[in-house]
Design a protein around this nucleic acid. Structure first.
Lengths: 149, 149
DNA sequence: CTACGCCTTCGAGTGCGCTCTAAGTCAACA
DNA sequence: TGTTGACTTAGAGCGCACTCGAAGGCGTAG
């Protein structure tokens, strides 16, 4: 039994609710999950794909685009499907790259402003200086908890 | 006359609608704009601040936090106001940094997937390879056009 | 003087992405 | 056998961030 999960376990593992998992399946954001005795069984492949979808979601890909991607995936490994999927992801990657630029700029500007404020009333040792651009462990990203991400 | 704008001109310059500008003012997302004969006059300071707010918005700061920031700003240059504003921005910057990490990772993963797809059916010369992490001009970011950003 | 743009208030509507309840059924486990 | 958990469909409701329209009034440029 290679790590099969019930819907409740899958919910726990993804940080979603059972409601939301069924909802996602219903609107085609994820493929129909195989059933055993009518109940959904989430295998490793399913879990991996759900995590991928959540990654896309939380980087701002729209439901629509993800639905399209899933639709293409269901068409199988035809040249068209593969190429279109690649294009879809490439378009998203392009958007993300632009976002990255914007984000980097904004952080720099914020850091300036913050430094300004701090220089006026430097009370506590500055917790977020301008130098190290990245300092967060990439591990803990439980993504969507309930109540508006 | 140092570049004063009517609301319509301000709308044009920001890519918002007059509706949205008044709406932002109403909900306290921007300060009340000075009036002349009852009509709003957007000076350079106003325009600069609106652009800053839009920057915050489009990097995902919530309306609530921006409202709070504007509220603090209205309190003037007291130590509390200044410190709290700094903290607010610092918290946002921290979130952005985390986002940056996530984004960078996701782009890398997407590029892998894309390369995979392309390697199966390499038709057109790959327009988005994995190497150059940034290639977009930072200039053209008109931000919120109308119709759901 | 008149037309135009702006003002105000009010309220309805939109799209997204959930979130939850209800009602009734069914299967597996202890 | 009974409880638990999952299933279905259907539908209501919510928070966010707009978006638009209407109605009625007013100031200023041409």
């Amino acid at each position: 039994m290679p790590e099969s999960k019930t819907i409740a376990e899958a919910a726990l593992a993804t940080g979603l609710t059972t409601h939301t998992l069924r909802y996602y399946e219903q609107i085609g954001l994820i493929d129909p999950v195989p059933r055993r005795g009518g109940q959904r069984v989430y295998g490793e492949a399913e879990m991996r794909f759900i995590h991928f979808v959540l990654k896309l979601r939380c980087t701002g890909m729209s439901m629509r685009d993800i639905q399209e991607y899933v639709r293409l995936r269901r068409l199988g490994e035809t040249p068209e499907s593969i190429r279109e999927r690649g294009d879809l992801l490439a378009r998203h990657a392009t958007k993300l790259r632009a976002q990255l630029v914007d984000l980097t700029e904004t952080i720099a500007r914020l850091d300036e402003k913050i430094a300004l404020y701090r220089s006026i009333y430097p009370d506590e040792p500055l917790p977020s200086p301008a130098e190290p651009p990245v300092a967060v462990a990439p591990a803990a990203t439980p993504s969507n908890r309930r109540k508006h991400a």
